[in-house]
């Protein structure tokens, strides 16, 4: 306890450990692409597979998660100097749970149907590892504005991923998008797509596409490097 009385100047001097990053476009874009929580980091698979059986569910879940990411990130970032490291996880969980409860009420007030179809998965945002991961790895070390921007990027990246699953599953499994019928009566919906296995199929197909794109890019980089070396 005696250490607490030491002057704060020492703390200032110790600031080379400061890892605050400056705000760049990358702060935002990282979550959308290079560090996309679903397609690159494979985080939060439970809601990704469970609530993406229609485009509107996917969008609702994604936006709810984005709100929680931004809100909890902001509060964690603002309080980062005062949260002792021993109780930081407990603090983050309380903060995250607060925003999840708020978003739960909000969705209930906005649309009863969406609330009913998302069911328990709204409350389960609390245990979504993306959010705790962002709080621990980013918000607890960064200033407010980068945290907000990064949270928005990550949230939109998550929403984008959910939407790309949800829209494909709804189109194939129900012949509709946002409830609007796309095909004639002759279209036989692939029911399996809106059942749980369909989630795995569509996720697998997207991951395959992204892996293929990444490999192709790497091969091109290699090829051009080789050409430059020989030239």
């Amino acid at each position: 306890m005696a250490e607490a009385s030491q002057p704060a100047v020492v703390a200032k001097a110790a600031d080379p450990f400061n890892r605050e990053e400056t705000l760049t476009a990358d702060t935002f874009l990282r979550g959308l692409w290079q560090e996309n929580p679903v397609f690159v980091m494979l985080l939060g698979m439970c809601p990704v597979l469970a609530v993406t059986n229609s485009a509107i569910n996917a969008l609702g879940m994604g936006l709810a998660t984005t709100f929680v990411l931004i809100g909890s990130g902001a509060l964690v970032s603002l309080l980062r100097r005062w949260i002792p490291k021993q109780v930081r996880i407990a603090s983050y969980i309380v903060i995250i749970a607060t925003f999840v409860t708020v978003v739960d009420y909000a969705i209930h007030a906005i649309s009863l149907e969406l609330y009913a179809s998302l069911g328990a998965f709204i409350q389960l945002i609390v245990v979504n590892c993306i959010i705790l991961g962002r709080a621990e790895a980013y918000a607890s070390k960064q200033r407010l504005v980068p945290t907000l921007v990064n949270g928005l990027g990550m949230g939109l990246g998550f929403t984008l991923a959910l939407f790309s699953l949800g829209s494909v599953r709804e189109i194939l499994g129900n012949g509709t998008l946002f409830g609007v019928t796309l095909f004639g009566d002759s279209f036989q919906p692939w029911l399996v797509m809106i059942l749980p296995p369909g989630g795995f199929f569509v996720l697998g197909a997207w991951l395959l596409l992204f892996a293929w794109l990444k490999q192709r890019r790497e091969r091109r980089v290699l090829a051009s490097a080789g050409a430059a070396a020989h030239g």
């Binding site: 030491q6 704060a8 110790a14 890892r19």
Partner: peptide, 15 residues
């Protein structure tokens, strides 16, 4: 080394 504030103490940790 002792650091006066919990926040700073944590920030030093990774180094």
């Amino acid at each position: 080394s002792p650091s006066p504030m919990p926040g700073h103490e944590y920030e030093q940790a990774p180094e």
